Amino acid sequence: MSSSDIFIGETIGTAVLILLGGGVCAAVTLKASKARNAGWIAIAFGWGFAVMTAVYISTPLSGAHLNPAVTVALAIKNSDWSDVPYYLGGQLLGAMIGAVLVWLAYYGQFHAHLTDKEIVGGPGAQATSAKAVEAQEQGAGPVLGIFSTGPEIRNIAQNLATEIIGTIVLILAVLTQGLNNQGNGLGPLGGLITAFVVVAVGLSLGGPTGYAINPARDLGPRIVHALLPLPNKGGSDWSYAWIPVVGPLIGAAIAAGIYNAAF
């Protein structure tokens, strides 16, 4: 694979991943969406199918890493870091493009949601819940969860551990499957299996933090949230933003070490 193929494949694949994954979050969250309040199961399966679709689209070009944690783990496993910058650059750019596409697809719903006084507050409005008040105090706006993750209980040690554990499960599943392209990406069956692993992680381990398990998936859309002209969007919770970046990278390194030692 050439460096241009890697960059283009990762950009396209990660954009599709975030478009569909962020899209299901928007569908479940936003006012005037037909899927509003569909719940966590819809989100978990939506992200799983997003991974599957993105993997099959990008595998011919880049091997479908779509996640800096996967890239780092494979670099450790193969002792080859030469292509890592192209993967990481494409993943971050693709994540930002995907987040912008979610905004465009749900433009009217974003406007309706963020101008509703019951949701964003206003004269005579009351906070919808204690959790909403806490989130606002922490700098997390009312639609930030569509773009990036956040904890239900803000505890640095627990939040970091949750992201590390979830990522270890994901990376071990990736590394122990049949990898094509000389160990640089998922094969056809691996894409399907990984999609269900993402669903499993979401259902079993996603409750505490929203399971980023992918630094680009969280950081790219968080940057877009900060830049988009959304009314009453609130903060982007930058004080938390390092956890879904550092946690998955630590988890990837641990998983790669386990793989090299045990397999």
Rank of each mutant, 00 (worst) to 15 (best):
P60Q: 02
E137Y: 05
Y259F: 15
F49K: 02
A99W: 08
I164A: 14
P142K: 04
A15D: 11
H225L: 07
V133R: 10
V51T: 12
I171Q: 05
T29A: 15
G46T: 04
V245L: 05
W238H: 00
F45W: 12
A44G: 03
Q182H: 13
A262R: 06
L249K: 02
Y107P: 01
V197Y: 14
A161L: 13
A241F: 02
F196L: 14
V16Q: 03
R154F: 09
W242M: 04
P231N: 09
P60G: 03
A253V: 09
I250D: 05
G124H: 13
Q136D: 08
A195D: 12
P60C: 04
D80A: 08
G150S: 12
G63K: 03
I97C: 06
T167D: 15
I8A: 15
I57S: 05
A54C: 13
N180W: 11
W81A: 05
V143H: 03
L203Y: 00
N159G: 06
A54Y: 10
V102D: 12
A261R: 04
A173G: 15
V84N: 07
A73T: 01
G251A: 11
F147R: 01
D116E: 13
W40D: 03
H111E: 11
V133K: 11
G13I: 12
N155K: 06
Y106N: 00
N37C: 00
I168D: 13
K233R: 13
T115N: 15
T71L: 06
A135W: 12
L205Y: 00
K77L: 04
W103G: 10
L66R: 07
A35I: 00
G94T: 08
I12N: 03
F196R: 09
D83A: 15
L179D: 10
I164K: 10
A173N: 14
Q91S: 11
G139S: 04
G9N: 13
L74E: 04
N37W: 01
V224S: 05
I41Y: 04
N232Q: 11
H65I: 01
V102Q: 09
L175F: 07
S3G: 06
L114S: 09
A127R: 09
Y259T: 03
V169L: 15
L203M: 11
I164M: 13
